[in-house]
């Protein structure tokens, strides 16, 4: 019985539920919300592959999302490109940016990388504003071919796109590659000493992470029929992605993706509180960071009992476990 709650089973059930959703409800607004949630899930999972796995928090993920979306916008000016072509094109454009940003920033992590990525994304946003003749500036670009003229098809496309993208990211994260990336987060010097080419793997993580951000950005462009700074390039988007991934839980792909669904649906639910909804939303974020340091999805998944789950000693290194650890800033302690 208990084995039913193994993470993968839960994922399969949720995926079936997502696919069956149009049969359960004819509410097109709800389906629209779920399409956005699918897109954000790919953003968060893509962010997680670089930032959650290697511990290099990217504060400018919108740069990659925007690169993919704007690539679609520019091509659409010439001919009405279809989604099947523009998703890979958007992904590859973003991957090129990933290479461009990733290589010079290899040495950076923590607040340094946070600022570098924040600055890079902000520069991209300003450039779009300055060259408004080409990019449409604040107005953005419209006239991008829709996914489908049938809303229901758009919904199914988004579920398929999400499932395939997150499936690939999950595989990468759970193949030896994922372990290699995590070893870089744990101790880069030790990983190098063990013969791992950390430079190669860090750049790879940057490029793959960027690819999925770009592909999802391109998908978003088709879904909205519009590309603009507020939709794909704003710093708010970068921050939203980080918040989703952290609330869900980093370093497991599924946690980050789950965070995107939780927060998108919660955000919709809270909208009934009018002005207060953003207040509740941010309060929840702070509470999760304070009381569930591993993220909501990861914390809840760990608490599920069962023979197939982690051994009993787990909680020692679990959410509350760090209390015995003395961080660099705390040496000496506060009485």
């Amino acid at each position: 019985m208990v084995k039913l709650f193994k993470p993968l089973n839960v994922v399969v059930v949720l995926l079936v539920l997502l696919l069956a959703m149009p049969l359960l409800t004819k509410n097109s607004y709800l389906l629209g919300v779920l399409i956005l949630a699918n897109i954000y899930a790919v953003y968060a999972a893509g962010w997680d592959l670089l930032s959650g796995y290697t511990g290099r928090e990217n504060f400018g993920y919108a740069l990659f999302i925007g690169a993919g979306a704007y690539a679609v916008g520019f091509i659409s000016k010439v001919f009405p490109v279809q989604a099947w072509l523009s998703l890979p094109v958007g992904g590859l454009t973003a991957a090129a940016f990933g290479l461009l940003i990733g290589i010079p920033c290899l040495r950076l992590k923590g607040p340094y990388l946070a600022l570098a990525t924040l600055a890079a994304a902000a520069i991209a946003e300003r450039v779009v504003m300055i060259f408004s003749g080409v990019t449409g500036g604040e107005e953005g670009m419209i006239g991008i071919a829709p996914l489908s003229f049938e809303p229901l098809n758009s919904y199914y496309y988004s579920v398929i796109f999400m499932a395939v993208s997150i499936g690939i990211l999950y595989l990468i994260g759970h193949l030896p590659e994922g372990l290699l990336l995590k070893s870089i987060k744990q101790d880069e010097t030790a990983a190098e000493a063990a013969g791992i080419n950390t430079t190669f793997h860090k750049v790879l993580a940057f490029v793959v992470s960027a690819f999925f951000g770009g592909a999802a950005g391109a998908f978003n462009a088709h879904y909205m029929g519009y590309v603009g700074p507020d939709a794909v390039l704003n710093s708010t988007i970068s921050l939203t992605v980080i918040i989703m991934a952290v609330v869900g839980g980093t370093g497991s792909i599924l946690g980050a993706a789950g965070g995107a669904y939780l927060l998108t649906l919660l955000g919709e639910f809270l909208k009934r509180f009018g002005d207060f909804h953003l207040l509740f939303y941010t309060a929840l974020l702070v509470l999760v960071v304070l009381f569930m340091p591993k993220g909501m999805i990861n914390s809840l998944a760990l608490k599920l009992p069962g023979p197939g789950s982690e051994p009993v000693s787990r909680p020692v290194s679990g959410p509350g476990g760090h209390s015995g650890q003395v961080g660099p800033g705390r040496a000496g302690g506060r009485q």
Binding site: G110, P111, L239, D275, L279, P293, H322
Partner: peptide
Amino acid sequence: VRQSSIAVMICTLGLAYFTQY
């Protein structure tokens, strides 16, 4: 959350938005 620099950054960022709203 002092031990983790990313937790501090996200927590304070969340609070900053909370204060703004």
